[in-house]
Simulated scan of single mutants.
Amino acid sequence: MSNFEDNQYLTFKIGEETFGIGLLNVKEILEYTHVTTVPMMPSFIPGVINLRGNVVPVLDVSDKFFKKKHSPDKRTCIVIVEVPESVNGARMDIGLIVESVYEVLSIPSAEIEPPPTFGSRIRVDFLSGMARQSSGFILLLNLIRLLTVEELTALEETRDEATHLTSSNAV
């Protein structure tokens, strides 16, 4: 059972590229919604959303990888993923703004190659591998390396502050 699930990937579009995330890390897919701006965050972190009472930081993947902000449209989604290891060792939910979600694919391990050492338009340390498909490659994201330790620390502090503010306002 785990072998089958481990090879399942949610695929989505960012810019001209198709990306994939291990399905076990995906918690849910939301229609794009208003993101509350948080001061002093990097440009690729436009803010946070309230997800059933939980503050979830949101990352604009297009801005992070290509330095090009994505203008949301009707196909834009926020994919809620669980980052396996954050700064304090706990898991952390992050929303990824993606242009459109494609499908869930089963990709056999034999079809996954290591990331290239050159020639990619994004930093290869963000990738866990590349899956060859008839239409080209699917770039498989490494969620642990998507953000630096400093960025994760800033996100956790922002989430904690926003959680504190919303809970103290509720009183």
Rank of each mutant, 00 (worst) to 15 (best):
T11C: 13
T18V: 14
G53S: 10
A110M: 14
S109I: 15
V55A: 09
S43V: 15
T153C: 07
G136S: 11
L140V: 05
K13V: 11
L59Q: 01
P84D: 12
G20D: 04
T33P: 02
V38L: 10
S109Y: 12
T11W: 08
E161M: 14
V55K: 02
V98D: 01
F4V: 06
G119V: 06
V48I: 15
N50Y: 01
K67G: 04
V38G: 02
R159Q: 14
D60R: 03
G95L: 04
L24W: 02
D93H: 13
L143A: 09
F137A: 09
S86M: 02
V61W: 00
D6E: 15
V81G: 06
H164A: 15
G89Q: 13
V56E: 01
A154Y: 01
G15I: 09
R159F: 03
R145I: 04
S71I: 15
V61H: 00
V81R: 04
L96S: 04
D63M: 12
S168R: 14
I97A: 01
V56Y: 01
M41G: 00
A131D: 04
T37G: 00
R145F: 10
L23G: 09
K69C: 07
G15D: 11
F137H: 09
E156S: 05
S71H: 14
V83Q: 12
A162M: 15
E31C: 05
K68H: 10
S71V: 15
L143W: 08
T158F: 05
F44P: 07
L152R: 07
N3H: 12
N7Y: 11
K27H: 13
R145C: 11
R132H: 09
C77G: 00
N3I: 12
Q8C: 09
L24N: 08
N54F: 06
N169W: 10
N169G: 12
P46S: 06
A131R: 03
D160H: 11
M41C: 00
T36H: 08
P39V: 12
E28F: 04
I138K: 03
R52L: 10
I97S: 00
T158A: 15
S168W: 09
F118C: 02
L143Y: 08
M130Y: 02
E157W: 03
I107M: 05
I97V: 14
D73Q: 11
P46Q: 02
E113I: 12
Q8L: 13
G89C: 12
L155W: 02
P39D: 07
N54E: 15
G95P: 05
P115M: 06
E16N: 13
L152G: 05
L165K: 14
L23W: 13
I49F: 07
V124D: 14
V26E: 08
M130D: 01
R121M: 06
P57W: 07
H34R: 15
T11H: 09
T148L: 08
A131L: 05
E16M: 10
M40E: 14
K13L: 09
E157G: 00
P114T: 12
R91D: 04
E150H: 12
D125S: 11
E157Q: 08
N25H: 15
L140W: 04
A170F: 13
H164M: 15
L105C: 01
M130F: 02
Y32L: 03
S100V: 01
V149I: 13
E99L: 05
I21Y: 03
V98F: 01
V104R: 00
F137E: 07
I29R: 11
G53P: 07
F19Q: 07
Y102Q: 10
L146H: 08
M41F: 00
K27N: 14
K13F: 08
S135H: 11
